[in-house]
Design a protein around this nucleic acid. Structure first.
Lengths: 209, 209
DNA sequence: GTCTATAAATAGATAGAC
DNA sequence: GTCTATCTATTTATAGAC
């Protein structure tokens, strides 16, 4: 197995982490190589020494992200929990991955917004595996007579979309709170995860209509 | 040959439409003033003549977007439909606004991803009004004994997040389809809207847990 | 209102020393 | 592996003619 990004030498790791933060905050086009170099406490030439180009650097971050999510999700599917618990664990796994890689939600959201422009075949395969894993859990639950038939892509979107929204709207929720909107502060990560788990199960168990 | 849609009308409108498409496709930083000018079949100087700067042009599009969504949503709330139907109409209104302004979902999603960096006070007020309108409908349903208490922000996210995902993932869904993922083609706008309506009502009527 | 031409700044990428 | 210096292309923005 390829070593995880971040274990391959101090300067490469520093570049990787600085770049992840920069891409998350400003997007691919908005990201600036000079700023990444400064944040990594290195010079710009070192970025090109380690990664070759801005695009390659970005793709390395994408692959690292999906690699991790994929691993977590596969662990869930290969456990011998009940289908219900696997769905709960699937939701938790996505949330855990997002919490472990704070740059993940903004980067992924932007990638969606631009139609997966920077997603190469390798990255797409990782993303696809996450989806297929969920599909397998749904199928398993159907075979066990616990789930009704459901489109895996729709269920997936119903899980990922609200979670990404939650992780990404910290800043905006704070802005709304300062603008006088109530109900802002009593939204917690655990609460959102539980909410999403319940909705996913209600859908899969045919309790929504 | 007839001008392309979006290049008709007075020059200010042409700039506006071309810019909306460009910002949607490439984000604020990725958008290019030359490309906007070409798409509007005008020269770049005209953009500055009409809007002054790239940032001002972008903000004009943001305000226009939220202004329209706000109008549609207010119409829903001020009708005398039942709370259930108002929720259904609220969901449909968001989807209609997104369909009427195809640039809306990608721009909004990116804006979320960067924490509302380009959202000024005016835009925030529009966004806030949409939320308060939903809160009012929820409150009304509660007073009528039809809805259980629910956090409006959570309900709002549960509606908007999946809808935005749907509108924004056309390209990626096509990519996934070509990569062999099944269940991709039988996702329709109407189906997603109905799904989201049902989930929102299931949540508000206390049927999810 | 509309255009051409260009200034001024920025940013991705590379050369070459150490 | 790390650095400084720089090349080259791109891009926001403006000047000024018509």
């Amino acid at each position: 197995m390829r070593p995880k990004a971040g274990t391959r030498g101090p300067s490469r790791t520093r570049v990787f982490n600085a770049a992840a933060a920069e891409f998350a905050a400003r997007g691919y086009a908005g990201a600036n190589m000079d700023r990444i170099a400064r944040a990594a406490r290195l010079n710009k030439a070192m970025i090109y020494y380690h990664f070759g180009s801005k695009a390659a650097l970005y793709r390395a971050i994408l692959v690292d992200m999906f690699d991790d999510v994929g691993r977590r999700v596969r662990d869930v599917a290969s456990s011998n929990a009940s289908p219900d618990d696997k769905i709960r664990a699937f939701v938790a796994a996505i949330a855990d991955a997002a919490a472990a890689h704070p740059h993940f939600p903004p980067i992924w959201l932007r990638e969606l917004a631009e139609g997966g422009q920077h997603v190469d075949t390798a990255t797409l395969t990782y993303a696809r595996n996450v989806l297929e894993t969920l599909a397998a859990i749904i199928h398993e639950g159907g075979a066990a007579g616990r789930f009704v038939p459901a489109n895996p892509l729709v269920v997936h979107a119903g899980i990922v979309a609200p979670l990404m929204f939650f992780f990404v709207t910290d800043g905006i929720r704070a802005k709304l709170g300062r603008a006088g909107v109530t109900h802002v502060s009593n939204i917690t990560r655990a609460g959102v995860v539980e909410h999403v788990q319940r909705i996913a199960l209600a859908v899969l168990e045919g309790r929504v209509g």
